[in-house]
């Protein structure tokens, strides 16, 4: 679905991603992990089309992404950013409806039946149906995160990019989020999710990409990608006798 080759990204003159390649296929659920500042968010932004590329090429279903209109691209890839501002005190349901924007930019009341169904289903999957009529700014941080997740799930796009979706979520909702993503992948969507919790990544994702200082250093199944060498040299941790992650050295 998404095939990116040789991506390089600069942020205000600073090189943040170097020669990164990402393959993401239908039905795949892939975790993108790495220490702070490794370039994970920048990589996601480049795939979402909101950060310019210094080098490299992104192909979406075989088509050069530069040839796609913004709307056509939004129909292929949906992105949940790390920073999620909501400028106005919209109803939670209206925030979710924005996920349908690429399909129908019309005002909320004029959403078609298919769009409304997608919004309802997404609210249900994100355990946010109860929050739908609430004013967004009256929701807690975790509740807001679930509404944002519903916005993403409501999208018509088959590929979903999520940047730290677990932040602000309690443990039950973290697990149910991962299960929801697994189900989405099983239904044919392609999922690329930035995670900080390596256990969560290993448990739910078929493949793990590890980034360090702008480079991809591993891209494999959980066991191989998170091998002791990577754990120690990239993350500075190791497994103790009980198998728990502890600080290395």
């Amino acid at each position: 679905m998404i095939s990116a080759n040789g991506l390089s990204i600069f942020l205000s003159g600073q090189r943040v991603v170097t020669d990164l390649s990402i393959e993401l296929g239908e039905g795949e659920m892939v975790a993108l992990v790495g220490p702070n500042g490794a370039g994970k968010s920048s990589a996601l932004k480049a795939l979402a089309g909101v950060t310019p590329l210094a080098a490299g090429e992104i192909r979406i279903d075989g088509v050069d992404a530069r040839r796609l209109s913004l709307r056509a691209r939004a129909r292929c890839i949906a992105w949940l950013p790390q920073a999620r501002p909501v400028a106005w005190n919209l109803a939670a349901r209206d925030v979710v409806s924005l996920g349908r924007f690429a399909e129908s930019p019309a005002a909320y009341d004029h959403l078609g039946g298919a769009d409304r169904q997608a919004v309802d289903a997404a609210l249900e999957k994100a355990d946010a149906a109860r929050l739908a009529p609430r004013a967004f700014h009256t929701l807690s941080g975790g509740e807001q995160a679930r509404v944002h997740l519903a916005r993403l799930l409501a999208s018509p796009a088959p590929s979903l990019l999520l940047d730290e979706p677990c932040a602000a979520l309690d443990i039950v909702h973290q697990l149910s989020l991962m299960e929801t993503l697994v189900a989405e992948a099983a239904s044919g969507r392609a999922i690329l999710v930035v995670l900080h919790d390596l256990e969560l990544a290993a448990r739910y994702c078929q493949r793990i990409m590890v980034m360090e200082a702008g480079h991809k250093v591993a891209d494999d199944g959980a066991q191989d990608a998170l091998n002791p060498h990577v754990l120690e040299h990239v993350f500075g941790v190791r497994r103790d006798a009980a198998g728990a992650l502890v600080r290395a050295g």
């Binding site: 932004k45 979402a48 089309g49 909101v50 209109s69 913004l70 709307r71 056509a72 691209r73 939004a74 129909r75 890839i77 949906a78 992105w79 950013p81 920073a83 999620r84 501002p85 909501v86 400028a87 106005w88 919209l90 925030v95 924005l98 996920g99 924007f101 690429a102 930019p105 019309a106 005002a107 916005r151």
Partner: peptide, 19 residues
């Protein structure tokens, strides 16, 4: 319509397909 998408900030609005 673009103004509505901008409720979620400029980057997210762009990713939603708003010019």
């Amino acid at each position: 319509p673009g103004l509505r998408a901008l409720s979620l900030g400029e980057e997210t609005a762009a990713s939603l397909g708003a010019d």
